[in-house]
Simulated assay, not measured.
Amino acid sequence: MNKKKLTKSIIAISLSVGVLGYGLTYLTNHDNALAQVTETKEIKKVHFTSSNTETNKINIQNTMLNAIDYYSTVAGSLEYYSKRGGFNLSVTYQNDLSEKPKSYEKTLYNQDTNVKTQAASNDDYEVKAYDGDTLSIYKSGSKERGIASNTTTEKVPPMPLETRNQFKGTTMKERIGATEGEKLYNYRYEPSLMSGTVKTSLLPEDIALGFLEDTTKWDIKGEEKIAGVNTVAIEGTLNANYTERFNAKNFKINVDPHTGIMLQMEVIDDTATVVEALYTKNIEIDNTLNQKLFSSVK
């Protein structure tokens, strides 16, 4: 069963490790997960309005928790900034969540201390391609830092349907358990092997569980268009754990209520400064993808 305590950062900071680690976690843990598969629930699209009601809040939670069930393909680009982590990333991605899921990502890095004012560098990047059978990762290295380029490959067979459907259609209450007085959070197995950064946007269950668990701490403020998508704007207060982690108290996120995809996130400190952020630059949902990208990292 894919359980963990919600005590880590919102995204996997060590992105290159996170990509391979995600595949390895699946390979080592999926047999145990199969022994405890939950009943699969039928996914139904919910009529949504932007009014700040408890029903709409619950619908937003559930759609974010199960976002990968509400679209088949997605392609786009995003930027992620972290003052605490000291980095700025730019990621181009495409994901196919059909019967044989695939993914492609190109991540540009900038680890300068003044990251928010400087674009990610073309000199330091990583390309990940998963064709449904093999996960390949190319790291460009960095001439500036004297790091050589390298390519790694790993056989990762398609995820069994039983594993893929574990916790499908479940609600916030069904995702949260406890052991020895500590909360445990149940997470979906994502079959296309998204990296942590992309998963934060395309399957934002960490955000739903971490920011939106207590519906009294956030409100639906209305609708906003982000990257051409009509989104619901949500503003709220961080819980004590995240307040300490980010040294901030408030957040704002924009979510597509039809797919659960989070297109924008801002964590804001007492001086109204954004200290952690995700910004979608462009996105296309359920359109044709470039199939060649899934099998090449060059």
Score class of each variant (00 low, 15 high):
N247D: 02
L108T: 02
N250C: 03
D214G: 09
A208G: 07
Y130F: 15
E144A: 03
E174S: 02
F48I: 10
N29W: 09
L209R: 04
G141E: 08
R245E: 02
P257A: 11
T73A: 11
V127E: 06
L193V: 08
S51P: 02
G21R: 02
V91W: 01
T134M: 12
F251M: 14
M262S: 04
K281Y: 02
R145V: 05
T151S: 13
M262L: 15
G181P: 07
L97I: 00
N122K: 10
S149G: 13
Y81T: 09
S140Y: 12
T38H: 06
E144Q: 11
N186I: 04
T280H: 03
V232Q: 10
E79V: 10
P191N: 02
Y109M: 10
I253K: 01
D112R: 04
I68Y: 13
I176K: 01
S98Q: 13
L289W: 10
Y26M: 07
I147T: 03
N110H: 03
Y93Q: 03
S77E: 11
N122S: 13
Y26I: 15
K3H: 10
S72V: 10
L65V: 05
W218I: 15
K100C: 00
E162P: 00
S90E: 07
H258W: 04
Y104D: 00
P160E: 15
A148M: 09
V74Y: 06
K106E: 14
I261Y: 05
